[in-house]
Design a binder for these strands. Structure first.
Lengths: 217, 217
DNA sequence: GTTTAAATTAAACAAGTGTTTAATTTTGCA
DNA sequence: TGCAAAATTAAACACTTGTTTAATTTAAAC
C-alpha cells in the first residue's frame, strides 16, 4: 500500500511527480535552506498535497537524500570521459575547469544544499555518498595532472589535492557573493551575470591554474 | 523599561551577558544554521532564560544583525594597516593571504553564517553592512597589487577583483569539506587539521597567487 | 529602609512544524 | 463492468517555534 516504507533510498523509482517535487525542493532548499523550507512550502509550489512528500519519500530527511542522490549520479561520468579524450595536458585542464563550472552552474541549487546541509556531520548517509563522489573526482583530476607532469609540461611541486578547492572555491565564492559582484561589475541582468562567469571568471580560473602548473621560478 | 525597543542595532551596548549570548549564537548558527537554531537552544547553552534574547536584542533576527555587526567591525582595520607597511609587493600579498586565513580561522563561525544566511537577499540591513566591508577590503587589495604592478613586479593582465575570491574561496571550500580532507590527508586531530591549514594550504594559496601575479607567457 | 528601575523568570500565546490517519478518488487490469 | 491497488485528499496529531505577558527577584539611588 505504502510505496516506500522500509525501503532504501537508491531504489526509489522516480516518476514525473517525484521529479517535480525534487526540482521544487532543490530550488527552495537552495533559496531558504533545508530547515528554512517547510513541506507545506514545497507542496504548495509543486501543487501537490502535503502528505505526498511523506508518501513518496518517507520523510523530509529522506527527500533530501533522494535529492542529493538524484542530482549527483551522472557527475562522475563526465570527468571520467574527459580522461579518455586525446588532448594536450593544458587543454585538458582548461576543459576540466569548464566542466566544473558548467556542472555547478547547471546545478547551483544542489551544490549550495550539499555544502550547507552536509557540513554538520549528522546526515551520515548523504555525506558518505558525497565523499565518494569527491574521491572519484579527485582521482580524475590527479591523473590528468600527472599526465602533464610526465610529459614535462607541468611542474611537479604542486599540491594536486588542493587544485580542486581553488577551482570550485573561486567559483563558489563568486556565486555566494553574487549581489556584491553584480554591484562592482555592474551586472544588471541575469544574462550579463552568466556571461561574466562564462567569459571572465572562467578565464581567470584557467589563467590561475595554468600559472600555478607551468610557472617556473 | 524594555532596554532596546525602537532602538537601532548599532547602539546596543554589549555587557558580558550579551556577549555570552552572541558567542553561543555564533557557534550554534554556524553549526546548525540560523533557521536550524532555536532561541531555546541558545538560551539553554548560554544558561539564560528564553525571554532574555528578546529582552536584550528584540528578536532573533536582530540578534543575527547584532552578531554580524559585533564580529566584523575590526576586520577592516587590519587590511588598512597592512597597506601602510613597508614591504615588497610579493611579501605584502603573502601577508595579505595570511591575514585573510587567520581572520576567517578565528571567526569560522560568523563567516559561515555570513555566507549562508546572507545569500538570500531578505536581510537587507546586515547584507549592506557586509557589502561595505567587502568593498573596503577590495580597495586595500587593489592598491597592494597596483603597487606591485607599478614596480614592474606583477603582470598587468590579471583580474584584480577576482583574486580575493580565489584566496578566500580556496580556503572556504577546504573548510566546508573539512571531513573529506581530514580523510584524504589523514588529519586525525584538530591540531593536525589546523597545522595543515597553517602550512600546506596557506603555502598552496600563496604559491597560486604568486604564480598568477608574476608568471610570464 | 524605602523606592524605582532593571533583570530575570515561568507561563502562556498563536502560529507553524513534520507526520499520520482514514476516507475518497483515480487508475490499471481481469 | 467490477475490483483491487495506487494515488490523492482534508483533517488531525503532537510538538516546536518566536514572542509576549505579568509576576517576581535583584540592584542601585536616595
Amino acid at each position: 500500500m505504502h510505496p516506500i516504507r522500509n525501503n532504501t533510498m537508491s531504489h526509489i523509482e522516480l516518476n514525473d511527480k517525484k521529479i517535480q517535487i525534487l526540482n521544487v525542493a532543490e530550488r527552495l532548499f537552495s533559496e531558504k535552506g533545508f530547515e528554512g523550507t517547510s513541506i507545506r512550502d514545497i507542496s504548495k509550489e509543486a501543487k501537490i498535497n502535503i502528505a505526498m512528500v511523506s508518501y513518496y519519500f518517507g520523510s523530509k530527511e529522506r527527500l533530501l537524500e533522494a535529492l542529493i542522490f538524484h542530482k549527483t549520479v551522472d557527475l562522475k561520468l563526465q570527468l571520467e570521459n574527459l580522461l579518455q579524450e586525446d588532448l594536450e595536458p593544458l587543454e585538458k585542464v582548461n576543459k576540466l575547469i569548464e566542466i566544473y563550472i558548467n556542472r555547478i552552474c547547471l546545478n547551483k541549487g544542489i551544490y549550495r544544499v550539499l555544502h550547507f546541509e552536509l557540513y554538520n556531520k549528522k546526515r551520515e548517509k548523504s555525506l558518505q555518498a558525497f565523499t565518494e563522489l569527491k574521491k572519484g573526482n579527485l582521482k580524475s583530476v590527479e591523473s590528468i595532472i600527472k599526465q602533464g607532469q610526465a610529459l614535462g609540461v607541468f611542474r611537479k611541486d604542486v599540491n594536486i589535492q588542493l587544485i580542486t578547492p581553488t577551482i570550485i572555491g573561486t567559483f563558489f565564492h563568486f556565486h555566494m557573493n553574487r549581489s556584491f559582484f553584480e554591484e562592482i561589475f555592474d551586472l544588471k541582468t541575469e544574462e550579463m551575470f552568466n556571461n561574466y562567469i562564462k567569459n571572465d571568471l572562467t578565464k581567470h580560473i584557467q589563467q590561475t591554474i595554468k600559472a600555478l602548473l607551468v610557472y617556473e621560478n
